[in-house]
Design a protein around this nucleic acid. Structure first.
Lengths: 391, 391
DNA sequence: TTGTATGCGTTATCAA
DNA sequence: TTGATAACGCATACAA
C-alpha cells in the first residue's frame, strides 16, 4: 500500500499534556501518501492532484500539523528571519538615580498575584515607575523601523538583547539570514567572522577600517547646528560636554561641538566635564559636584537624551533651575524629551529610518552581495524646545 | 587518524561573496577531533579536556563558526525562542485620516537616497509623519514587557505581525517554544491546534469557552470608574460610545459603561453611536456627520486611545472644541494620549505587566504544563487629564 | 575523555 | 502525479 512507505517508529509522547507535534510522517500516514507529497501539498500545491491535496490538507488540519521551522530552516538553508541584536537594556531614570544596577529588569512574582478577581494596578509595580516612562528609547525606535521594514520584506524578526559577547551574538546569528547590530566595543572580531557568512549591518557606529555595512547619522553636523544655536541665538559662550566620548558616535558629537566653538572664536574643551554613562554607578557624580559648588558652565551639552534627562534631575536636586541657571541639551530625539519638564532641546535622529534602511540592506545583500561595504549617513534635525532657554 | 572520522563530502560554495557557513564538520576537521567533541566543547565544556577544548574553540573562532540554530533546534527539540504574534499594524492617525489603507508601511526608496554625504532628514519622509508619532501603541507597550521578561528568562523573542491567518500563525509557531498572541476572530481553530503542541497565551481576549491561557484586564471595572467620573464629577448625563464592540474587550467596556449609567439612573445606549474601527475606510463617518449637525452627546466614550485621538481630530475639523463642546475619553493609556491637545483622559492598562506575565506563563507552562487554563485579570487605573474637562 | 552512529523534520532531486 | 531517499547541521546515547 502507498501509506506503508518510509515509515518510522512512532509512539505516544511520554509526558502528559505536551502532545508530540505532528510531523509530515503523521500527516502522510493519515492521508495515505508519501511525505514528499505532504511537503508538495504545502509548498507546490499546483503539482499535486487536487483531490490528493485536499486529503493531505484535511489530514494536516485534523492533526494540528504545523511544519517545524527548525527543520525547514535546516533543509532550506535559510530561516526567513532577520535578527536585531541590541546592547543591554539601559536603566531607566529612576533606577539610574537610585543606583540599581544589578538587575535592570525587576523580578515579577507571579504567585504573589492572586488569580481570582482583578489584580490591582498598584500591585503590579507599574505605578512605581517613572511617569512617563522613558520609553521608547533610542534603540526601541530604531527597532520599530527595523520591524516595519522587515515585515514589508516578508521577514520575521528575532530580537536579542544583551551583552555582545561572542556567544550571545553567534547564538542569534545561527538563527537568522541577516543581522543588524548595535555595536559595542567587545565583539568586533565575532562580527567580522559572522559577516563572512551572512549580511551584517552596524547601526550608529562611526566608520572604521572594517568592511561592515553601516547606517549612521551625521553626528558632527547635528551637533554643530545645536552649538550654533546655543552660541548665536542664546549668546552662551561657556559650554561643557557631558558623557563618555568612548562610543564612536559620541566622539563625533564631541568633535562637532569643538568645531562649532572654534569657528566662533571660542576655545573648545579638551575633555567632557563628566564622562559618565548611565550604566555605571555614580554616574554624573562630577556634574553633581560642580552643581553643588555652583561652578558649572552656562550650558551642558549632553551626549544623548537619556543622559540629558538625568542631568536635569541632578541639577534640580542641587537646587539649580534649567534653563535659567544652566541650559541643558540632548541628542537623539526620543519621546521622553517631549514629556520632561522642561522639555528637552535636542538633535533628532531619523531613528525609524535607520532601522528601515538596515533591514533593506540586509535584504538586498542577502539577495545579491555587493562588493564593498554600504554606508548610509543620515541627516539630523534640531529640535528646539525649552531646556536651552527657548520659549 | 582521528580527524578522518564521519567525514562528509565538502566543496567550496558556488556563489561568490556568500561563504558557506562553517559547520561542526569543518571545525572538527580543523581541530582534528570528532564532531561530538566539537559539540561538547560548546555545550558541556567540563567534559572535554582543557587542551582539546582550547583547540576546538580556536578552530571555531578561526573559521567563524556559529552553530546553526535550525540544526540545534531540530536536534534538541526546542528552539529557545518565544514568539509574539500581533495583529496587523494599525495605521497611524495621519494615514487613517487620509484614508490610506493599502500599504500601512510606506515604501522606502533606498536608491533615491544618495549615499555620498549625509542624506537630509527631510528626504527620509520622517518629517511628514505625525509628530509626535502615535507610537508606542498598545501592542508595542505590551510587546516591550514581553521582551523584557523573555530576556530575563533567557529566551529570545520572535516577532511576527500580520494577519492571524492559519498559515501566518502556524509559521511562527513552527519556530518557537511558546506563543503569545493578540487574537483576532479568524484563527481560533489554528490556535487550538497549536496549543496542543506548545503553550499559547492569549492577550487581552475576554474569556470564552476555550481552554487558552489568558492575560487580560478589568475592562468593565475600568470603564465603570471612568463613567463614574464623567457623571459624578462633571455632571454629564449624555454619553455616547464610539467604536466597534466586536472585539470581546470592547464589548466588556461597552457593558461597563451601561452598568455605570444604569446605577446612576441613566438609560444606557443600546449601541455605539459609531461602530468604526481605524482599520476601515470612512472610519468615524457617523461621528463626523453628527458633529456637523451638532447632534453629538455631551461626552464621547471611545473604545481605545487611538480611536479617541482620531475622534478629537474629527471634532476639531468640524469646528467643535474638546472638552468645552464635547468631552472625549479613551482607553489604554498609551503615551500618545499624554502628548495630544488636549491631553487625553483615559483608563490605563498595565501593558508592560501584561507582556511580562504572558512570557512568564509560557515559561512556566513549558517547564510543567498545568491542568487547566491560567487566567490573570489585571486592574486598571483612571488617568484624568484634560479631554474630559478637568484641569 | 573521545569517537561512532543515529535521529530530529523538512526540502528537493531523481525515479517511477 | 507520486514515491524513495539523500542531504541539512547538530545533540546525544552508547561504545571504546
Amino acid at each position: 500500500m502507498a501509506g506503508e512507505t518510509t515509515e518510522r517508529p512512532r509512539e505516544g509522547s511520554g509526558e502528559p499534556g505536551a502532545v508530540r507535534r505532528a510531523t509530515v510522517y503523521d500527516v502522510a500516514r493519515a492521508a495515505e501518501v508519501s511525505i514528499a507529497t505532504v511537503s508538495f501539498a504545502f509548498r507546490r500545491p499546483d503539482s499535486v492532484k487536487p483531490s490528493t491535496r485536499e486529503r493531505v490538507l484535511a489530514a494536516a488540519r485534523a492533526l494540528g500539523y504545523a511544519p517545524s521551522g527548525a527543520a525547514r530552516g535546516l533543509a532550506a538553508g535559510r530561516t526567513g528571519v532577520f535578527g536585531l541584536h541590541s546592547f543591554d537594556l539601559i536603566l531607566d531614570h529612576a533606577q539610574a538615580l537610585a543606583g540599581e544596577f544589578d538587575d535592570p529588569v525587576p523580578e515579577l512574582d507571579l504567585d504573589a498575584l492572586a488569580a481570582d478577581g482583578p489584580i490591582s494596578f498598584d500591585a503590579l509595580g507599574e505605578a512605581a515607575w517613572p511617569d512617563p516612562r522613558a520609553y521608547p528609547l533610542y534603540v526601541d525606535e530604531v527597532q520599530r523601523g527595523f520591524e516595519l521594514e522587515s515585515r514589508r520584506l516578508g521577514r520575521e524578526v528575532l530580537l536579542s538583547r544583551g551583552s555582545s559577547s561572542a556567544t550571545a551574538v553567534a547564538d542569534t546569528a545561527g538563527r537568522v539570514d541577516g543581522l543588524a547590530v548595535f555595536p559595542t566595543r567587545d565583539a568586533p572580531e565575532t562580527l567580522r567572522t559572522i559577516s563572512r557568512t551572512m549580511p551584517v549591518v552596524l547601526l550608529s557606529a562611526a566608520p572604521s577600517e572594517d568592511d561592515h555595512h553601516r547606517v549612521l547619522v551625521d553626528n558632527m553636523g547635528g551637533m554643530q547646528t545645536l552649538i550654533a544655536h546655543l552660541i548665536d541665538d542664546h549668546g552662551i559662550r561657556d559650554l561643557g560636554f557631558v558623557g563618555s566620548i568612548e562610543p564612536s558616535d559620541a566622539a563625533e558629537r564631541f568633535r562637532g561641538m569643538g568645531l562649532a566653538m572654534a569657528e566662533r572664536g571660542l576655545t573648545p574643551p579638551e575633555a567632557p566635564i563628566d564622562s559618565s554613562t548611565l550604566a555605571e554607578r555614580d554616574s554624573l557624580a562630577r556634574v553633581a559636584e560642580l552643581a553643588a559648588q555652583r561652578r558649572l558652565p552656562r550650558a551642558l551639552v549632553c551626549t544623548n537624551d537619556q543622559l540629558a534627562l538625568v542631568t536635569m534631575e541632578v541639577l534640580r536636586g542641587a537646587g539649580l533651575d534649567v534653563p535659567t541657571d544652566v541650559a541643558v541639551t540632548g541628542f537623539d530625539g526620543v519621546l521622553a524629551g517631549r514629556l520632561s519638564t522642561p522639555t528637552l532641546t535636542t538633535v533628532r535622529q531619523p531613528m525609524e529610518s535607520m532601522g528601515r534602511i538596515a533591514a533593506r540592506i540586509l535584504a538586498d545583500e542577502y539577495a545579491a552581495p555587493s562588493k564593498g561595504p554600504r554606508r548610509y549617513r543620515l541627516g539630523t534635525r534640531l529640535e528646539i524646545r525649552a531646556s536651552c532657554g527657548c520659549a
